[in-house]
Amino acid sequence: KITVTFNGEEKARRYYKKMQKHNLKVEIRVENNQWVVHVE
């Protein structure tokens, strides 16, 4: 499981979509004013 933190929504969403293309289970959320993407 990987957790990647971004300081911008745009970058986070781009990464999220990229990971989805690989058929990975991805989850995006905001934690402590940071955009966090969890990849299983």
Rank of each mutant, 00 (worst) to 15 (best):
A12R: 02
E27V: 09
F6E: 01
K25P: 04
Y16W: 05
A12S: 03
H22M: 13
R29F: 13
E31F: 05
K17V: 10
K17S: 08
K21M: 11
K11M: 14
L24Y: 12
V26I: 05
T5M: 11
K17P: 03
N33G: 15
V36P: 00
V39M: 05
K18L: 14
N7L: 10
E31W: 04
E31V: 13
N23L: 06
E40H: 09
V37D: 00
N32D: 09
T3Y: 06
V4R: 11
K17W: 08
Y15T: 02
V39Y: 05
Q20E: 07
T3A: 06
H38Q: 14
N32M: 06
R14Q: 13
I28E: 00
E31H: 08
Q34E: 07
M19V: 06
K11G: 13
Y16S: 06
R14K: 13
N33M: 06
H38A: 12
V4S: 03
V36W: 02
V4W: 03
H38F: 11
E31Y: 05
E40R: 08
I28W: 01
F6A: 01
E10D: 11
Y15K: 02
R29T: 13
T3V: 11
K1L: 10
R14G: 04
K17G: 05
E40C: 10
Q20V: 12
A12K: 01
G8P: 03
Y16D: 02
R14H: 09
K25D: 06
Y15D: 02
F6W: 02
K17N: 13
K1H: 14
Q34N: 08
E9M: 11
F6V: 01
M19E: 02
W35A: 01
Y15W: 06
I2H: 12
I2G: 04
K25G: 04
Q34K: 14
E9T: 02
V30W: 12
K17Y: 08
V36T: 06
E40P: 05
W35N: 00
Y16A: 15
V37A: 01
Y15N: 01
W35I: 02
K17E: 15
K11C: 15
R14D: 15
R13E: 05
N32Y: 04
V36Q: 04
H22T: 09
A12I: 04
V30I: 13
N23A: 12
N23G: 15
E9H: 05
K25F: 07
M19G: 03
N7A: 11
A12D: 01
Q20K: 14
Y16F: 12
F6N: 01
R29P: 00
I28H: 00
G8V: 14
V4Y: 08
Q34V: 11
T5P: 04
N32K: 07
E10H: 09
K18D: 12
V4F: 07
K21V: 07
E9Y: 14
E27I: 12
K17A: 11
V26K: 00
V37Y: 00
I2T: 09
N33I: 04
V39Q: 02
E27C: 07
V39L: 07
V36N: 02
M19C: 11
E10Q: 10
E10K: 11
T5I: 15
W35Y: 04
V30L: 14
A12H: 06
V36L: 07
L24A: 09
H38M: 14
M19K: 02
K11H: 14
I28D: 00
G8L: 13
N33W: 03
V26Y: 00
N33D: 11
Y15A: 02
K1F: 13
Q20C: 14
N33K: 05
M19Q: 02
H22D: 05
K21I: 08
V37W: 00
V39K: 01
T3S: 09
K18N: 10
K1T: 13
A12C: 08
G8Y: 12
L24F: 11
G8A: 14
E31A: 06
E40F: 14
K25R: 10
K21N: 10
Q20P: 02
I2P: 02
Q20L: 14
V36K: 03
R29D: 06
N23P: 02
R13T: 05
E27W: 06
T3C: 14
Y15F: 15
K21G: 12
Q20T: 06
T5Y: 13
K21L: 10
R13G: 02
E10G: 08
Y16K: 06
V26F: 01
K11R: 12
F6T: 01
K11W: 10
K18S: 12
L24R: 09
E10F: 09
Q34D: 03
M19I: 05
Y15E: 02
A12L: 04
N33Y: 04
Q20M: 13
R29W: 13
E40W: 15
N23H: 14
V30H: 13
Q34F: 11
V39G: 01
K18P: 01
V39H: 03
E10A: 13
V4L: 10
Y15P: 02
E10L: 10
E31D: 07
H38P: 01
E31G: 04
A12Q: 03
V39D: 00
V30A: 08
K1Y: 14
N23F: 14
I2N: 05
K1G: 15
Y15M: 03
V37L: 02
K1R: 14
R13I: 10
I28S: 00
H22L: 15
E10I: 08
Q34L: 13
N32H: 08
K1E: 08
I2F: 15
Y16V: 12
V39W: 05
L24D: 03
E40G: 10
V37Q: 00
V4T: 04
E40Y: 15
N32P: 03
K18R: 10
H38S: 15
A12W: 05
I28M: 08
G8W: 08
K21S: 12
